[in-house]
Structure formats: C-alpha cells, structure tokens
Simulated scan of single mutants.
Amino acid sequence: MNDLLAGLRAAFGLIIHLDHNLVEISLRSLQVTISAVVIASIIGLPFGAWLAVTRFRYRRLTIAVLNALMGLPPVVVGLIVYVLLSRSGPFGVLDLLFTPTAMIIAQVIIITPIIASIGHQSMRELWYVYHDLMISFKTTKWQRMMVLLMDGRRSLLTAVLTGFGRGIGEIGAIMIVGGNIDHLTRVLTTAIALEVGKGDFPLALGLGIILISLAIIVNLAIHLLSRTEREGTW
C-alpha cells in the first residue's frame, strides 16, 4: 500500500512539474489520435449518410460487413499495414514504417468502421423521419446527406467520441507499425507498457492518469456541447 501511495505521489509530481517525457508522449498521442479521428470522420460520416439515403442491391450485406469491421483485431490491422509499408511491400518506397504517419494510417483503418457504423445508425433513424419531406421537395442525394449530417450532429458527436476513445487506447497496431521509438513514435499506451516492464511505475502511473483524464475530459466536453445545443434548440 505504501509503495502504491509513493508511486501515486511521484506520478502526480511528474504531472504537476510537466515532466518533459510525460508532455512529449502525451502530445504525440493526441497528435496521432486526433489526426486519425479527423480523417476517419471525413471518410466515415459521409459514407454512413450515403448508406442511410441510398438503396442498392447489396446494401444489407454492406451494412453487415461494416458492422463486422467494428471488431477488427488491431494486431491484424497492424500486421497488414506493416506488410504494405515494409520495404518489400507495395508502399515501401514511401518509407513510412515506424513513423507517426504509419500509426495514423493504422488508427484510421480501425476507427473508420466504428464512426461510419454508429453514424449510419443515427442517420438512418433521421432518414425515416425526413424521408417523405425530402422526396416531396425533390432533393438530390447530396442534399439529403447534408441535411442528415447537419441535423444529426449531436448523435454524430457520439460516433466521433467513440472513435477517439478507441484510438487513444490502442496499443497492438501502434506497437507493430510504430515500433515504440523514443522521441518519435512512443505514445501513451506503448509508453505505459514499456515503463511497467522497466519498473518505472511513477512514470507509468502518470501516463495512465493522463490517459484516463483525456477520456473524461472528452466525454465532459461532448456532454456540455450536446446540452448547450439542446438548450439552444428549445
């Protein structure tokens, strides 16, 4: 118990004094995950809206596959990205392996199905409400998608938040394609695993506290934004 309390005191000391390694790793984690979430949202949200307003032969199969991709094993994603970006792979000439870019690519592959699937479920419900009105106004498919994206923005925040939470806590794919290189690709999750292995529990606890705090802050921010919008609507 005493060791735990001492470790927590040391961890909070590192946070309060803005330890250089702690700040560097935290900022890199945010950079990688936020970049991946932005890219995944740009891809996933319009795709979810398109699925909501479009009817085609293999639509149900497409939705089923999309939902299944939400459970993609991160290690498998990391392995695939590693093979594609390795020197013998088709994109090896780009020399992206063991860089933050490779980590972002892996996270985008993991996050996009989550954002697209949750976003589609929300916009599908809206489409049931707006369907007759949109048809009567003879709107184009693009206009219908834009209306769903705008009117469903509160629920879409949940999809984006879920994607962020999935990305910030990722370790398997990140470790494979990033390599956990100090001052280059080391992020919160990989650093925690490394520091625990080294026995540096204060730094590991400090990183863990930041990781949990980020999740709480993002959830509170989304809650406040949603509440503000509801008050503005009413």
Rank of each mutant, 00 (worst) to 15 (best):
I42L: 01
I216E: 13
T189Y: 12
I110E: 06
V196D: 05
I104E: 04
T140M: 12
I192M: 09
A68N: 04
M175L: 15
L225G: 02
R230W: 10
Y130W: 10
I174S: 04
I174H: 02
R59Y: 04
L72P: 06
D151M: 14
A215Q: 05
V53N: 03
N21D: 13
P113N: 06
A64Y: 11
F98G: 04
S26F: 09
M1G: 05
F137D: 01
L61H: 15
A6H: 11
L194D: 06
F137Q: 11
T140A: 07
T33D: 08
R227P: 06
I217P: 06
S155F: 09
L156A: 01
L211H: 01
T101I: 15
F56D: 08
L84W: 11
V37Q: 00
R9M: 09
V53F: 03
W127S: 00
Q107T: 03
T54E: 12
L220H: 08
A204V: 06
P73D: 08
V93W: 06
S41E: 11
P74G: 10
W234A: 12
W142F: 10
I34K: 06
T33N: 12
R28I: 13
L96V: 04
N180C: 06
A49L: 07
G167D: 04
L97H: 04
L157C: 01
A49G: 03
I176R: 11
E170V: 02
V108D: 01
K198A: 12
S86R: 12
G44E: 10
G199Y: 08
L94K: 05
D200L: 04
S117K: 12
T162L: 11
T185K: 05
T54G: 01
I222A: 13
W50C: 04
L211E: 10
G119M: 00
A10C: 08
L69E: 14
L214T: 02
F56M: 05
E170D: 07
G89C: 03
N219Y: 03
E195L: 04
L220M: 06
A36R: 14
S41Q: 10
A221V: 11
V108S: 00
I181Q: 12
T233S: 10
M175T: 09
T185A: 11
P46L: 01
G172E: 10
L5N: 08
Q31L: 15
I192E: 03
M134W: 02
S88A: 15
V160N: 02
L18N: 09
I209E: 11
L97T: 01
T62K: 08
S29R: 12
L72M: 13
Y58C: 09
A52F: 02
A106H: 00
Y58G: 08
V129M: 07
M70C: 15
V81N: 03
I15P: 10
G89E: 10
S155M: 08
A36C: 08
R166I: 01
I63D: 14
R87I: 02
G232T: 00
I115F: 00
L79M: 14
A106M: 03
H131R: 15
M123G: 01
M175C: 02
G178I: 01
L211P: 00
Q31I: 13
A215F: 07
P46Y: 00
L207K: 07
L72S: 08
G78W: 12
N180A: 05
Y58F: 15
I16H: 15
T158N: 09
T233L: 15
I222P: 00
Q31E: 14
L148E: 02
P73N: 05
G163V: 00
A40Q: 13
R153S: 14
T162Y: 10
I25W: 03
R227S: 09
A49P: 02
E229T: 09
